[in-house]
Nucleic acid binder design. Sequence first.
RNA 1: CGGGGCGUAGCGCAGCCUGGUAGCGCGACGGUUUUGGGUACCGUAGGCCGUAGGUUCGAAUCCUAUCGCCCCGACCA
Length: 445
Amino acid sequence: MRLSRYFLPVLKETPSEAQIVSHRYMLRAGMIKQQAAGIYSWLPLGYRVLKRIETIVHEEQARAGHIPLLMPTLQPADLWRESGRYDDYGEEMLRITDRHKREMLYGPTNEEMITDIFRSNVESYKQLPLTLYHIQWKFRDEVRPRFGVMRGREFLMKDGYTFDVDRDSALHAYNRHMVSYLRTYERMGLTAIPMRAASGPIGGDNTHEFLVLASTGESEVFFDTAVTDLKLGQRDVNYDDREQVAKVCEEFTTLYARTDETHDEALFNAIPEERRKVARGIEVGQIFYFGTKYSEAMGATVVTADGSRVPVEMGSHGIGVSRLLGAIIEASHDDKGIIWPEGVTPFPVGIVNLKQGDGATDAACDALYAALMAQGLEPLYDDSDDRAGAKFAKMDLIGLPWRITVGPRGLAAGKVELTSRRTGISEEMSPEAAVARVAEIYAGV
RNA sequence: CGGGGCGUAGCGCAGCCUGGUAGCGCGACGGUUUUGGGUACCGUAGGCCGUAGGUUCGAAUCCUAUCGCCCCGACCA
Protein backbone atom coordinates (compact mmCIF):
# COMPACT_ATOMS: atom_id res chain seq x y z
CA MET A 1 0.00 0.00 0.00
CA ARG A 2 1.25 3.40 -0.95
CA LEU A 3 0.74 5.89 1.85
CA SER A 4 -0.30 8.55 -0.68
CA ARG A 5 -3.28 6.37 -1.62
CA TYR A 6 -4.12 5.11 1.83
CA PHE A 7 -6.38 6.59 4.49
CA LEU A 8 -4.27 7.09 7.58
CA PRO A 9 -5.35 10.19 9.51
CA VAL A 10 -2.59 10.39 12.13
CA LEU A 11 -2.63 13.05 14.82
CA LYS A 12 0.34 14.87 16.21
CA GLU A 13 -1.49 15.79 19.37
CA THR A 14 -3.40 13.50 21.68
CA PRO A 15 -7.17 14.01 21.79
CA SER A 16 -8.17 14.98 25.32
CA GLU A 17 -10.63 12.11 25.70
CA ALA A 18 -7.87 9.50 25.89
CA GLN A 19 -6.20 8.66 29.16
CA ILE A 20 -4.33 5.41 28.75
CA VAL A 21 -1.56 4.74 26.29
CA SER A 22 -3.34 2.24 24.04
CA HIS A 23 -6.31 4.53 23.60
CA ARG A 24 -4.06 7.50 22.85
CA TYR A 25 -2.00 5.64 20.30
CA MET A 26 -5.02 4.11 18.62
CA LEU A 27 -6.48 7.57 18.14
CA ARG A 28 -3.19 9.16 17.12
CA ALA A 29 -2.34 6.37 14.70
CA GLY A 30 -5.71 6.82 13.00
CA MET A 31 -6.95 3.34 13.93
CA ILE A 32 -10.29 4.22 15.48
CA LYS A 33 -12.74 7.05 15.80
CA GLN A 34 -15.19 7.26 18.64
CA GLN A 35 -18.83 7.59 17.56
CA ALA A 36 -20.47 7.52 20.97
CA ALA A 37 -19.36 6.51 24.45
CA GLY A 38 -17.79 3.07 24.08
CA ILE A 39 -18.65 2.76 20.38
CA TYR A 40 -16.00 3.08 17.69
CA SER A 41 -15.51 3.13 13.96
CA TRP A 42 -12.53 1.08 12.88
CA LEU A 43 -10.46 3.08 10.44
CA PRO A 44 -8.40 1.21 7.86
CA LEU A 45 -5.27 0.69 9.96
CA GLY A 46 -7.21 -0.46 13.02
CA TYR A 47 -9.43 -2.63 10.87
CA ARG A 48 -6.39 -4.41 9.43
CA VAL A 49 -5.15 -5.31 12.90
CA LEU A 50 -8.62 -6.37 13.98
CA LYS A 51 -8.79 -8.68 10.98
CA ARG A 52 -5.34 -10.08 11.70
CA ILE A 53 -6.38 -10.96 15.23
CA GLU A 54 -9.62 -12.47 13.97
CA THR A 55 -7.69 -14.57 11.48
CA ILE A 56 -5.37 -15.95 14.15
CA VAL A 57 -8.36 -16.82 16.32
CA HIS A 58 -10.07 -18.61 13.42
CA GLU A 59 -6.93 -20.52 12.51
CA GLU A 60 -6.36 -21.75 16.04
CA GLN A 61 -10.00 -22.67 16.44
CA ALA A 62 -9.82 -24.71 13.26
CA ARG A 63 -6.67 -26.42 14.53
CA ALA A 64 -8.55 -27.48 17.66
CA GLY A 65 -11.40 -28.86 15.58
CA HIS A 66 -13.95 -26.19 16.42
CA ILE A 67 -16.60 -25.22 13.91
CA PRO A 68 -17.39 -21.61 12.94
CA LEU A 69 -20.89 -20.29 12.38
CA LEU A 70 -22.48 -16.87 12.77
CA MET A 71 -25.36 -15.90 15.01
CA PRO A 72 -27.15 -12.54 14.82
CA THR A 73 -26.47 -9.52 16.99
CA LEU A 74 -30.18 -9.07 17.74
CA GLN A 75 -31.97 -11.78 19.66
CA PRO A 76 -35.56 -12.31 20.75
CA ALA A 77 -36.19 -11.70 24.44
CA ASP A 78 -38.21 -14.91 24.80
CA LEU A 79 -35.10 -17.05 24.43
CA TRP A 80 -33.59 -15.27 27.40
CA ARG A 81 -36.74 -15.69 29.42
CA GLU A 82 -36.27 -19.45 29.16
CA SER A 83 -32.94 -19.35 30.94
CA GLY A 84 -34.09 -16.68 33.36
CA ARG A 85 -31.35 -14.32 32.32
CA TYR A 86 -33.67 -11.76 30.72
CA ASP A 87 -34.43 -10.47 34.18
CA ASP A 88 -31.08 -11.33 35.75
CA TYR A 89 -28.95 -9.39 33.30
CA GLY A 90 -30.19 -5.97 34.33
CA GLU A 91 -29.35 -2.62 32.84
CA GLU A 92 -26.30 -3.88 31.02
CA MET A 93 -28.51 -5.51 28.44
CA LEU A 94 -29.57 -3.23 25.64
CA ARG A 95 -33.26 -3.87 25.08
CA ILE A 96 -34.99 -2.94 21.87
CA THR A 97 -38.61 -3.10 20.77
CA ASP A 98 -39.34 -3.66 17.08
CA ARG A 99 -42.27 -2.21 15.10
CA HIS A 100 -44.49 -5.12 16.06
CA LYS A 101 -43.78 -4.41 19.72
CA ARG A 102 -41.71 -7.58 19.96
CA GLU A 103 -39.09 -7.40 22.65
CA MET A 104 -35.57 -7.85 21.34
CA LEU A 105 -32.10 -7.37 22.72
CA TYR A 106 -28.65 -6.71 21.35
CA GLY A 107 -26.80 -9.84 22.43
CA PRO A 108 -24.20 -9.56 25.19
CA THR A 109 -23.41 -13.27 24.73
CA ASN A 110 -25.00 -16.28 23.04
CA GLU A 111 -25.53 -19.22 25.39
CA GLU A 112 -29.30 -19.19 24.93
CA MET A 113 -29.18 -18.93 21.17
CA ILE A 114 -26.60 -21.65 20.70
CA THR A 115 -28.55 -23.90 23.03
CA ASP A 116 -31.63 -23.27 20.92
CA ILE A 117 -29.72 -24.20 17.77
CA PHE A 118 -28.42 -27.31 19.46
CA ARG A 119 -31.71 -28.55 20.85
CA SER A 120 -33.52 -28.24 17.56
CA ASN A 121 -30.88 -30.17 15.63
CA VAL A 122 -29.02 -32.61 17.86
CA GLU A 123 -30.65 -35.66 19.40
CA SER A 124 -27.96 -38.28 19.84
CA TYR A 125 -24.69 -38.75 21.65
CA LYS A 126 -23.35 -39.90 18.27
CA GLN A 127 -23.32 -36.26 17.14
CA LEU A 128 -21.08 -35.31 20.04
CA PRO A 129 -18.66 -33.90 20.94
CA LEU A 130 -19.50 -30.64 19.22
CA THR A 131 -17.91 -27.22 19.50
CA LEU A 132 -19.49 -24.30 17.71
CA TYR A 133 -18.17 -20.78 17.84
CA HIS A 134 -18.53 -17.42 16.20
CA ILE A 135 -16.83 -14.06 16.12
CA GLN A 136 -19.54 -11.45 16.37
CA TRP A 137 -20.22 -7.99 17.74
CA LYS A 138 -21.69 -7.87 21.21
CA PHE A 139 -23.15 -5.06 23.25
CA ARG A 140 -23.05 -4.50 26.96
CA ASP A 141 -24.41 -1.21 28.09
CA GLU A 142 -21.66 -0.44 30.56
CA VAL A 143 -22.46 2.36 32.96
CA ARG A 144 -19.10 3.83 32.30
CA PRO A 145 -17.22 2.80 29.19
CA ARG A 146 -13.56 3.85 29.18
CA PHE A 147 -10.06 3.07 28.00
CA GLY A 148 -11.04 3.06 24.33
CA VAL A 149 -11.63 -0.39 22.89
CA MET A 150 -10.53 -2.05 26.12
CA ARG A 151 -13.80 -1.31 27.74
CA GLY A 152 -16.21 -0.37 25.02
CA ARG A 153 -19.92 -1.00 25.01
CA GLU A 154 -19.85 -2.54 21.55
CA PHE A 155 -17.08 -5.08 21.21
CA LEU A 156 -16.02 -7.93 18.96
CA MET A 157 -15.78 -11.25 20.69
CA LYS A 158 -15.09 -14.83 19.84
CA ASP A 159 -17.44 -17.01 21.82
CA GLY A 160 -17.50 -20.76 21.56
CA TYR A 161 -19.78 -23.37 23.05
CA THR A 162 -19.04 -27.00 23.73
CA PHE A 163 -21.55 -29.83 23.89
CA ASP A 164 -20.59 -33.17 25.39
CA VAL A 165 -22.37 -36.26 26.57
CA ASP A 166 -20.71 -36.46 29.99
CA ARG A 167 -18.67 -34.49 32.45
CA ASP A 168 -15.30 -36.03 31.55
CA SER A 169 -15.73 -35.17 27.91
CA ALA A 170 -16.84 -31.67 28.83
CA LEU A 171 -13.75 -31.18 30.96
CA HIS A 172 -11.61 -32.31 28.06
CA ALA A 173 -13.32 -29.67 25.94
CA TYR A 174 -12.45 -27.16 28.64
CA ASN A 175 -8.81 -28.23 28.64
CA ARG A 176 -8.68 -28.24 24.86
CA HIS A 177 -9.81 -24.63 24.89
CA MET A 178 -7.20 -23.70 27.41
CA VAL A 179 -4.42 -25.08 25.24
CA SER A 180 -5.76 -23.58 22.03
CA TYR A 181 -6.10 -20.20 23.73
CA LEU A 182 -2.53 -20.35 24.97
CA ARG A 183 -1.39 -20.92 21.42
CA THR A 184 -3.67 -18.16 20.11
CA TYR A 185 -2.24 -15.54 22.48
CA GLU A 186 1.32 -16.61 21.88
CA ARG A 187 0.86 -16.10 18.15
CA MET A 188 -0.20 -12.55 18.92
CA GLY A 189 3.03 -11.94 20.79
CA LEU A 190 1.32 -11.97 24.17
CA THR A 191 1.96 -13.73 27.42
CA ALA A 192 -1.55 -14.42 28.69
CA ILE A 193 -1.60 -16.22 32.01
CA PRO A 194 -4.54 -18.49 32.83
CA MET A 195 -5.78 -17.60 36.29
CA ARG A 196 -8.41 -19.24 38.38
CA ALA A 197 -11.38 -16.90 38.32
CA ALA A 198 -14.88 -16.30 39.59
CA SER A 199 -17.71 -17.22 37.29
CA GLY A 200 -19.91 -14.11 37.18
CA PRO A 201 -23.26 -14.08 35.37
CA ILE A 202 -22.39 -16.94 32.99
CA GLY A 203 -22.43 -19.42 35.86
CA GLY A 204 -20.44 -22.55 36.58
CA ASP A 205 -17.57 -23.25 38.89
CA ASN A 206 -14.71 -24.37 36.68
CA THR A 207 -13.35 -21.25 35.06
CA HIS A 208 -10.10 -19.53 34.16
CA GLU A 209 -9.44 -16.04 32.93
CA PHE A 210 -6.50 -15.24 30.67
CA LEU A 211 -4.66 -12.14 31.76
CA VAL A 212 -2.06 -10.03 30.04
CA LEU A 213 0.12 -8.19 32.52
CA ALA A 214 -0.02 -4.41 32.13
CA SER A 215 0.07 -1.59 34.65
CA THR A 216 -3.22 -0.26 33.29
CA GLY A 217 -5.01 -3.57 33.77
CA GLU A 218 -8.41 -3.52 35.46
CA SER A 219 -7.75 -6.54 37.68
CA GLU A 220 -5.31 -7.02 40.49
CA VAL A 221 -3.48 -10.31 40.05
CA PHE A 222 -1.32 -12.44 42.31
CA PHE A 223 1.11 -14.96 40.89
CA ASP A 224 4.28 -16.95 41.08
CA THR A 225 6.67 -15.25 38.64
CA ALA A 226 7.74 -18.67 37.34
CA VAL A 227 4.41 -18.82 35.55
CA THR A 228 5.51 -16.08 33.13
CA ASP A 229 8.32 -18.30 31.86
CA LEU A 230 5.96 -21.00 30.64
CA LYS A 231 5.69 -21.19 26.87
CA LEU A 232 3.70 -23.49 24.67
CA GLY A 233 6.05 -22.77 21.78
CA GLN A 234 6.00 -24.96 18.71
CA ARG A 235 5.24 -28.20 20.51
CA ASP A 236 2.85 -30.51 18.75
CA VAL A 237 -0.34 -31.01 20.70
CA ASN A 238 -2.93 -33.54 19.61
CA TYR A 239 -6.15 -31.87 20.65
CA ASP A 240 -7.99 -35.20 20.73
CA ASP A 241 -5.53 -36.72 23.18
CA ARG A 242 -7.19 -36.16 26.53
CA GLU A 243 -4.17 -37.09 28.56
CA GLN A 244 -1.73 -34.94 26.65
CA VAL A 245 -4.05 -31.93 26.68
CA ALA A 246 -4.71 -32.34 30.41
CA LYS A 247 -1.00 -32.49 31.02
CA VAL A 248 -0.37 -29.19 29.27
CA CYS A 249 -3.17 -27.61 31.30
CA GLU A 250 -1.68 -28.94 34.47
CA GLU A 251 1.68 -27.45 33.53
CA PHE A 252 0.12 -24.03 33.06
CA THR A 253 -2.25 -24.02 36.02
CA THR A 254 -0.29 -25.61 38.84
CA LEU A 255 1.77 -22.58 39.76
CA TYR A 256 -0.14 -20.01 41.77
CA ALA A 257 -1.89 -17.42 39.59
CA ARG A 258 -5.15 -15.84 40.66
CA THR A 259 -7.18 -12.69 40.35
CA ASP A 260 -8.30 -10.79 43.42
CA GLU A 261 -11.65 -12.59 43.24
CA THR A 262 -10.14 -15.97 44.04
CA HIS A 263 -6.94 -14.89 45.75
CA ASP A 264 -5.91 -16.97 48.76
CA GLU A 265 -3.43 -15.22 51.01
CA ALA A 266 -2.20 -18.41 52.70
CA LEU A 267 -1.46 -20.21 49.45
CA PHE A 268 0.15 -17.11 48.01
CA ASN A 269 2.46 -16.74 51.00
CA ALA A 270 3.66 -20.31 50.53
CA ILE A 271 5.45 -19.18 47.34
CA PRO A 272 9.13 -18.28 47.89
CA GLU A 273 9.18 -14.57 48.51
CA GLU A 274 11.35 -13.60 45.55
CA ARG A 275 8.84 -15.23 43.18
CA ARG A 276 5.75 -13.67 44.73
CA LYS A 277 4.28 -10.92 42.61
CA VAL A 278 1.27 -8.64 42.81
CA ALA A 279 0.52 -6.80 39.59
CA ARG A 280 -2.29 -5.71 37.32
CA GLY A 281 -3.69 -7.53 34.34
CA ILE A 282 -6.01 -7.09 31.38
CA GLU A 283 -8.47 -9.88 30.86
CA VAL A 284 -8.38 -11.07 27.26
CA GLY A 285 -10.36 -14.27 27.53
CA GLN A 286 -12.22 -16.61 29.80
CA ILE A 287 -13.26 -20.24 29.69
CA PHE A 288 -16.14 -21.80 31.60
CA TYR A 289 -17.43 -25.24 32.24
CA PHE A 290 -20.97 -24.88 33.52
CA GLY A 291 -22.46 -28.32 33.01
CA THR A 292 -26.20 -28.40 32.46
CA LYS A 293 -27.21 -24.91 33.58
CA TYR A 294 -28.62 -23.91 30.19
CA SER A 295 -29.38 -27.33 28.77
CA GLU A 296 -31.65 -28.12 31.71
CA ALA A 297 -33.42 -24.79 31.66
CA MET A 298 -33.93 -24.93 27.92
CA GLY A 299 -34.48 -28.63 27.38
CA ALA A 300 -31.35 -29.44 25.37
CA THR A 301 -31.01 -33.18 25.81
CA VAL A 302 -29.37 -36.07 23.99
CA VAL A 303 -30.00 -39.77 23.92
CA THR A 304 -27.05 -41.69 25.35
CA ALA A 305 -25.62 -45.07 24.33
CA ASP A 306 -27.85 -46.85 26.81
CA GLY A 307 -30.96 -45.19 25.48
CA SER A 308 -31.58 -42.74 28.30
CA ARG A 309 -32.01 -39.03 27.74
CA VAL A 310 -29.75 -36.55 29.56
CA PRO A 311 -29.23 -32.80 29.46
CA VAL A 312 -26.12 -32.03 27.44
CA GLU A 313 -22.95 -30.93 29.23
CA MET A 314 -21.87 -27.46 28.17
CA GLY A 315 -19.10 -24.95 28.44
CA SER A 316 -18.45 -21.56 26.90
CA HIS A 317 -15.23 -19.85 26.01
CA GLY A 318 -14.55 -16.29 25.00
CA ILE A 319 -11.78 -14.18 23.55
CA GLY A 320 -12.13 -10.40 23.55
CA VAL A 321 -11.06 -9.76 19.98
CA SER A 322 -11.45 -5.98 19.83
CA ARG A 323 -10.13 -5.53 23.36
CA LEU A 324 -6.99 -7.44 22.36
CA LEU A 325 -5.82 -4.48 20.29
CA GLY A 326 -5.71 -2.39 23.42
CA ALA A 327 -4.11 -5.17 25.44
CA ILE A 328 -1.40 -5.74 22.85
CA ILE A 329 -0.56 -2.04 22.71
CA GLU A 330 -0.49 -1.78 26.49
CA ALA A 331 1.98 -4.65 26.53
CA SER A 332 4.02 -3.45 23.55
CA HIS A 333 4.80 0.22 23.06
CA ASP A 334 7.33 2.90 23.88
CA ASP A 335 7.23 6.68 24.10
CA LYS A 336 7.27 7.01 20.30
CA GLY A 337 4.29 4.81 19.63
CA ILE A 338 3.05 1.29 19.12
CA ILE A 339 5.34 -1.70 18.58
CA TRP A 340 3.30 -4.40 16.84
CA PRO A 341 4.29 -8.01 17.29
CA GLU A 342 4.87 -9.58 13.86
CA GLY A 343 1.80 -11.78 14.26
CA VAL A 344 -0.71 -8.94 14.31
CA THR A 345 0.98 -6.02 12.57
CA PRO A 346 -1.18 -4.21 10.01
CA PHE A 347 1.71 -4.27 7.54
CA PRO A 348 4.77 -6.50 7.91
CA VAL A 349 7.20 -3.80 6.90
CA GLY A 350 7.34 -0.11 6.02
CA ILE A 351 9.36 1.49 3.27
CA VAL A 352 10.61 5.03 3.80
CA ASN A 353 11.74 6.88 0.72
CA LEU A 354 14.06 9.62 1.92
CA LYS A 355 14.10 11.53 -1.32
CA GLN A 356 10.78 11.27 -3.08
CA GLY A 357 11.11 12.47 -6.66
CA ASP A 358 14.70 11.34 -7.05
CA GLY A 359 14.77 8.91 -9.94
CA ALA A 360 17.13 6.39 -8.37
CA THR A 361 15.50 6.28 -4.92
CA ASP A 362 11.99 6.13 -6.38
CA ALA A 363 13.04 3.25 -8.62
CA ALA A 364 14.73 1.43 -5.75
CA CYS A 365 11.60 1.80 -3.60
CA ASP A 366 9.38 0.56 -6.41
CA ALA A 367 11.63 -2.47 -6.89
CA LEU A 368 11.60 -3.21 -3.16
CA TYR A 369 7.86 -2.88 -3.08
CA ALA A 370 7.43 -5.34 -5.93
CA ALA A 371 9.90 -7.80 -4.43
CA LEU A 372 8.13 -7.76 -1.04
CA MET A 373 4.72 -8.16 -2.67
CA ALA A 374 6.09 -11.16 -4.57
CA GLN A 375 6.90 -12.71 -1.18
CA GLY A 376 3.35 -12.10 0.02
CA LEU A 377 4.52 -9.30 2.30
CA GLU A 378 2.57 -6.15 1.60
CA PRO A 379 4.64 -3.16 2.69
CA LEU A 380 3.34 0.26 3.65
CA TYR A 381 5.34 2.55 1.43
CA ASP A 382 5.67 6.16 2.55
CA ASP A 383 5.92 7.80 -0.85
CA SER A 384 4.96 11.26 0.42
CA ASP A 385 7.34 14.17 0.06
CA ASP A 386 7.49 14.79 3.78
CA ARG A 387 10.98 15.07 5.11
CA ALA A 388 12.72 12.17 6.76
CA GLY A 389 11.98 13.09 10.36
CA ALA A 390 8.26 13.29 9.75
CA LYS A 391 8.25 9.92 7.98
CA PHE A 392 10.21 8.21 10.73
CA ALA A 393 7.99 9.67 13.42
CA LYS A 394 4.90 8.42 11.61
CA MET A 395 6.32 4.95 11.11
CA ASP A 396 7.32 4.79 14.77
CA LEU A 397 3.85 5.88 15.85
CA ILE A 398 1.95 3.29 13.81
CA GLY A 399 4.39 0.66 15.01
CA LEU A 400 5.32 -1.50 12.03
CA PRO A 401 7.93 -3.91 13.41
CA TRP A 402 10.34 -3.46 10.49
CA ARG A 403 11.29 -0.50 8.35
CA ILE A 404 13.39 -0.33 5.23
CA THR A 405 14.90 3.10 4.67
CA VAL A 406 15.95 4.03 1.17
CA GLY A 407 18.02 7.13 0.47
CA PRO A 408 20.51 8.40 -2.09
CA ARG A 409 23.42 8.22 0.32
CA GLY A 410 23.06 4.50 1.04
CA LEU A 411 21.94 3.69 -2.47
CA ALA A 412 25.20 5.02 -3.86
CA ALA A 413 26.84 2.10 -2.07
CA GLY A 414 24.07 -0.29 -3.12
CA LYS A 415 22.62 -0.39 0.40
CA VAL A 416 19.32 0.18 2.15
CA GLU A 417 18.76 0.14 5.86
CA LEU A 418 16.65 -2.40 7.74
CA THR A 419 15.53 -1.20 11.17
CA SER A 420 13.81 -3.04 13.97
CA ARG A 421 11.10 -1.00 15.62
CA ARG A 422 11.52 -2.89 18.85
CA THR A 423 15.29 -2.57 19.30
CA GLY A 424 15.92 0.44 17.10
CA ILE A 425 18.91 -1.39 15.65
CA SER A 426 19.61 -0.69 11.98
CA GLU A 427 21.60 -2.77 9.55
CA GLU A 428 22.80 -1.79 6.12
CA MET A 429 22.42 -4.36 3.39
CA SER A 430 21.50 -4.75 -0.24
CA PRO A 431 17.81 -4.43 -1.13
CA GLU A 432 17.76 -8.12 -2.03
CA ALA A 433 19.18 -9.07 1.35
CA ALA A 434 16.63 -6.86 3.10
CA VAL A 435 13.76 -8.59 1.33
CA ALA A 436 15.22 -11.97 2.17
CA ARG A 437 15.62 -11.02 5.82
CA VAL A 438 12.04 -9.78 6.13
CA ALA A 439 10.76 -12.90 4.39
CA GLU A 440 12.74 -15.03 6.80
CA ILE A 441 11.40 -13.17 9.83
CA TYR A 442 7.82 -13.68 8.71
CA ALA A 443 8.27 -17.27 7.63
CA GLY A 444 7.85 -18.35 11.25
CA VAL A 445 4.87 -16.11 12.03
C1' C B 1 -25.79 5.21 39.76
C1' G B 2 -23.04 8.84 43.56
C1' G B 3 -19.17 12.78 43.15
C1' G B 4 -16.40 16.20 39.92
C1' G B 5 -15.35 18.53 35.15
C1' C B 6 -15.82 19.90 30.00
C1' G B 7 -18.57 21.09 25.10
C1' U B 8 -15.50 27.58 20.95
C1' A B 9 -11.96 25.54 13.33
C1' G B 10 -9.78 18.60 11.84
C1' C B 11 -6.69 18.34 16.82
C1' G B 12 -4.93 21.03 21.41
C1' C B 13 -6.57 25.39 23.77
C1' A B 14 -7.60 30.97 25.14
C1' G B 15 -11.78 34.30 25.47
C1' C B 16 -16.71 33.69 29.79
C1' C B 17 -15.74 36.21 36.22
C1' U B 18 -16.38 42.29 34.58
C1' G B 19 -22.10 41.11 27.71
C1' G B 20 -20.32 45.11 22.50
C1' U B 21 -20.42 41.15 15.98
C1' A B 22 -14.26 35.23 17.87
C1' G B 23 -8.60 34.36 18.68
C1' C B 24 -3.79 31.41 19.29
C1' G B 25 -0.78 26.93 18.35
C1' C B 26 -0.64 22.50 15.53
C1' G B 27 -2.72 20.31 11.22
C1' A B 28 -4.77 21.05 6.05
C1' C B 29 -4.17 23.71 1.40
C1' G B 30 -0.88 27.07 -2.07
C1' G B 31 4.07 28.92 -2.69
C1' U B 32 9.39 29.54 -1.58
C1' U B 33 13.03 26.98 1.10
C1' U B 34 14.78 22.55 3.04
C1' U B 35 15.83 17.34 2.65
C1' G B 36 19.23 10.89 6.86
C1' G B 37 14.72 12.07 13.06
C1' G B 38 8.10 16.02 13.29
C1' U B 39 12.76 22.39 8.72
C1' A B 40 11.96 27.74 8.19
C1' C B 41 9.35 31.80 6.05
C1' C B 42 5.06 33.92 3.33
C1' G B 43 0.08 33.29 2.19
C1' U B 44 -5.09 30.83 1.98
C1' A B 45 -9.30 28.27 3.54
C1' G B 46 -12.00 26.64 7.64
C1' G B 47 -16.46 28.16 13.32
C1' C B 48 -25.25 29.52 13.41
C1' C B 49 -19.09 29.25 20.33
C1' G B 50 -23.34 21.47 21.67
C1' U B 51 -28.93 22.43 21.32
C1' A B 52 -33.45 25.04 22.81
C1' G B 53 -35.64 28.84 25.42
C1' G B 54 -35.11 33.32 28.44
C1' U B 55 -32.91 38.26 30.17
C1' U B 56 -30.90 42.49 27.27
C1' C B 57 -30.56 47.64 22.50
C1' G B 58 -26.93 43.67 22.08
C1' A B 59 -25.28 36.89 24.51
C1' A B 60 -19.59 32.41 23.27
C1' U B 61 -20.05 35.42 27.82
C1' C B 62 -25.72 36.04 32.37
C1' C B 63 -30.26 32.61 33.66
C1' U B 64 -33.15 27.97 32.79
C1' A B 65 -33.68 23.44 30.51
C1' U B 66 -31.76 19.71 27.58
C1' C B 67 -28.21 16.60 24.91
C1' G B 68 -23.30 14.83 24.59
C1' C B 69 -18.41 13.67 26.32
C1' C B 70 -14.48 12.97 30.06
C1' C B 71 -12.49 11.84 35.05
C1' C B 72 -12.88 9.40 40.33
C1' G B 73 -15.81 5.68 42.75
C1' A B 74 -19.25 1.40 42.53
C1' C B 75 -19.76 -2.34 38.38
C1' C B 76 -17.87 -5.11 34.37
C1' A B 77 -15.07 -9.21 28.88
